[in-house]
Design a protein around this nucleic acid. Sequence first.
RNA 1: GGCGCAUUCGUCUAGGGGUCUAGGAUACCACCCUUUCAAGGUGGAGACACGGGUUCGAGUCCCGUAUGCGCUACCA
Length: 482
Amino acid sequence: MRLRFAPSPTGNPHIGNVRTAIFGWLFARKHGGKYLIRVEDTDRSRRTEGAVESMLESLRWVGLDWDEGPDVGGDAGPYVQSERLDLYHDLAQRLIESGHAYRCYCSPERLDEIRDTQQKRGDEVIGYDGRCSELTATDSSSREREGAPSVVRIRMPDEGTSALDDIIFGHLEFENRLYDDFVALKSDGFPTYHFASVVDDHSMGITHVTRAKEWISSIPRHVQLYSAFGWEMPEFAHMPVILAPDKSKLSKRHGAASVMDYRDMGVLPSALMNYLALLGWSLDDKTEVFSPDELIEAFELGRVSRSDAVFDIDKLLSINGQHIRRSSDEELADHLGRYWNDSPPDFDVTSTPDKIAQVTPLVRERLKTLNDAAPLVKFVFTEEVPVDPTDLVQRGMVPESTRHALNAVRERLRDLDTFDAPSIEEALEPLYEDMGIKRGRLLGTLRAATTGQRVSPPIFESMEVLGRERTLNRIRKAIDAL
RNA sequence: GGCGCAUUCGUCUAGGGGUCUAGGAUACCACCCUUUCAAGGUGGAGACACGGGUUCGAGUCCCGUAUGCGCUACCA
């Protein structure tokens, strides 16, 4: 089996495209097939600088890999359509010679005109009227001598139907007479999508074509092309699209739409892949969290839905939280390190990689995104911590009693043999009753004193990570501030 | 206009004639747990677009309507 993802490099990789890529990749990997990337850059006016690179980077980040492609090469290359023009020209010529195609010299203006009158007239079929299809070889060569610009058009049959059995949509059948003779080669010498994709899918040995469902209407053109060449058709699987919350097609104007936007938000690649796969596919009525390997194992193209799905950021974040909680200490520390490297928090994290590992277990249960981690653990990475008397002095207490309590805590902690969370908790246990302070109140005071934050990981664990010296110093400072 | 595809809780979905007084997840609400925040637990509210058929019986099959989306380019 050979599958391909065929992006056109017109901008930032969109999560809709990426999901289509993921479905094809999952299918290929599940069945031990090959997966390749082919760049469809046949529209010169829409090319944008660096688009190929950012597309590949996005795909790699989300966890895809490929056996052949523009960056890794392969036997079926080149993998960029603008480098395959000779192939398209040769094959177009072959179709002209076999009578399946012809040169058309009609101007864009004439094309607009006929469309207009057809529309005004309310014609059933709107499109090229086939004027140049009758041109003789001598007509043609005289036009060529004049240097007239031309396109190559494929003849569509006037009768019969074109059909295929789609893996996802089932039987799809269309009347040929409703389709006009379409352009295969543009006047600038570049092929159209229809022509290039059929030629390349065949010459690259693609066995399963996965693509967005907006191509369903083009099926007759592609069927006729395969038939004109006498090529065997691959299998097809058309995919539903991803919608924005307002049910329009997802786009930049809806905010985060590119893969990298989600990386920047602190989403794990495995979670993005998981969520995207769930948008239009499901295993059963309960399983939702999948690692990439589990997805490969479970995925079935036939279970992909036929209807479009609305993208729901809350659900993505929920899945992300579950991936974070599922990850090991090492994995999460690694993710956090990378994330803080790309999007540094407002404190220095670079010189203290070991602290990231210490802090990881404290935050795991508390994160929806990696971005949530910094405010929770800032106190570990900073020397000075803000001291706010109003947070220090809990409800029902006064500065004097607070100072007294903190002193008692200091004494007990100073004498501890081992400064770890269970020992700290145990050492403080008698204090609540002795001093007549509610446990929650005293712990609140300690949180303010040692972390300088209203919200933090559990306080005993936090103190352990801080270490005895820093903990005692901060308590000392809090006492002084009162 | 023509052609095509789709339509189950707000959202993602399970469902392929009886087991559906429609299941799960997310979001929301309440309670429990609890040193903050989370996480976790329990419970609540919430859907088969509409109308005709077929059938003993329809969310599931057929037809129509409505709505949404796509195509109808020398864009992909």
